[in-house]
Structures are given as C-alpha cells and as structure tokens.
C-alpha cells in the first residue's frame, strides 16, 4: 500500500484532521479524523514508497503496550478504514 499524496495532517482538539491540501474545494463535512495512534501511523508511512499490515504492526508494537495479535488486528482495521476512505492505494510494483 501507499498513501495518496496531497493530504495534510492537522491537530484538531484531541484528534487529528486529514485535509486534502491539494484541492481548491475542501468539504468540511467529509473530513477524516484520526485518533492519536492512527495519526502516529499516518505520519510514519506518509513518505514510504510502500507499507503493509506488518509495517503498521511493527510501528504499533514499537510505540504502544499491546500484544502482537492486538497490534496486527489494529493494523488490519486501520488499513481497511483508510482504504474505505480512499486515503491509500496499492503501491506500484
């Protein structure tokens, strides 16, 4: 997977907002908010050429006190939610 370019992560209260900075029309009703851990993952993969669920699992294990199984489950859920929100795409081979 790889992040679709053009999004900026902005702190907003206790959460983070992903804003499509590259477009001229920003729909605030369709904004994507990330919690602290999702924002941490986003920051760490935003510049990577590619990442997968193992990448996110390792990042979670390095930062949070979670079991490998829980980290893998969270990584899978995160990737699924990012795919649903069209934030990531398949990395080019």
């Amino acid at each position: 997977m790889k992040v679709i370019p053009g999004f900026a992560l902005r702190p907003l209260g206790n959460e983070y907002l992903l804003i499509a900075e590259s477009v001229d029309l920003v729909n605030f009703n369709a904004m994507i908010t990330l919690n602290e851990s999702a924002a941490y993952l986003w920051r760490n993969v935003a510049d990577k050429e590619s990442f997968d669920e193992q990448t996110l699992t390792k990042l979670l294990l390095a930062e949070y006190e979670v079991s490998p199984e829980q980290a893998l489950e969270d990584a899978r859920k995160t990737i699924a939610s990012w795919q649903d929100a069209h934030l990531i795409t398949e990395a080019e081979l």
Partner: peptide, 14 residues
C-alpha cells in the same frame, strides 16, 4: 481551521 483554509484561498464547505 476553516478560517485558515479560506485565508489560503480555498473554498470550504461546511
């Protein structure tokens, strides 16, 4: 945040 985006020249819907 809306004000910041508008100030940058973007149109914002809310």
């Amino acid at each position: 945040e809306i004000a910041r985006l508008v100030n940058e020249g973007k149109q914002v819907i809310f």
